[in-house]
Write a protein that binds this DNA or RNA. Structure first.
Lengths: 152, 152
DNA sequence: AGCATATATTTGCCTTGACAAATATACTTG
DNA sequence: CAAGTATATTTGTCAAGGCAAATATATGCT
């Protein structure tokens, strides 16, 4: 180039941008890991599977809320994941409006692979932070989140 | 509800999700602030204007890289912002392929309003963190970012 | 100079996610 | 119980962004 106005990188970013950059890198890294295993999953799909694996069966809207995904978008992701055979839409016993989304055996099997990817990426991302610092980072982020949500 | 399986909130989220949640809240808050001032700007557009105001004129692709936005998407955002009269596409003196994007007077005037919104949102977001903690959060995030980028 | 390669911008195509409307149930109150 | 309101899921529509192809320049090498 010429003017050498290095606009890239991260020169004292404001929080909003910085968060976006970090998140984008994590998403990218995760999807790369997944692709390396021959898995064709988006980060969103990974999150959905993670929730189900961690918290067990739940309704589509609970799932949507927990991942901050729109209900409509969730319906379509469920279509994909059900199509791939990783989960099942069952009837909800107490509420006939709702579904009970549960992992299939294939879904559970898949999860064991995903744990791995997840682990590797998070470890790599935080490798320059001590255990204490990692905990602190998490704490700070949670406090920021609460501050934004409770506009008290 | 029934089962009370509180899947919402933020019970020990992994970094990826947490970052997404925080960022989403910041974006939401910023756009709300903007709308409150009668401004119809997306967070992305805000970022573009911010870059130009802070770093001065630069090419479209420098701008795109610095906001982590795809080149094609940038072209379209520039269309919008130029249409609203906030910026101008000029010829780049040294490189006839490139553009020199610069703020118009209206764009600079707008920026003085945006600084305000930006300030308010970031202050609110970090209000439960001390100055020292805010700096530390920034530092941690930058370290994570570097760790992810330099896969050394 | 001639050619191959790299970069800047634009455009077309496609996917994702937000929002709103439609439908089916649930819940709440008079 | 009936009416009104709230919630769950699905579908249509739209805007935003990623990717690839097209075009115009630049740059580097021979």
């Amino acid at each position: 180039m010429n003017t050498e106005s290095l606009a890239f990188a991260t020169p004292q970013e404001s929080l909003g941008i910085l968060l976006g950059l970090v998140r984008a890198e994590i998403v990218r890294a995760m999807e790369t890991e997944l692709a390396a295993k021959g898995l064709n999953l988006s980060f969103t799909q990974f999150l959905i599977l993670k929730r189900l694996a961690r918290l067990g069966p739940m309704s589509a809207s609970e799932l949507a809320r927990s991942v901050e995904l729109d209900g409509g978008a969730m319906t379509r992701q469920l279509d994909h994941l059900e199509g791939k055979g990783y989960l099942r839409r069952c009837r909800h016993e107490q509420d006939r409006r709702a579904l009970r989304i549960e992992l299939t055996d294939a879904g559970n099997a898949l999860w064991t692979q995903l744990v791995d990817c997840n682990e590797r990426v998070l470890t790599a991302a935080q490798r320059s932070l001590s255990e204490a610092e990692q905990a602190q980072l998490q704490d700070y982020l949670e406090r920021v989140l609460h501050a934004l949500r409770d506009k008290s």
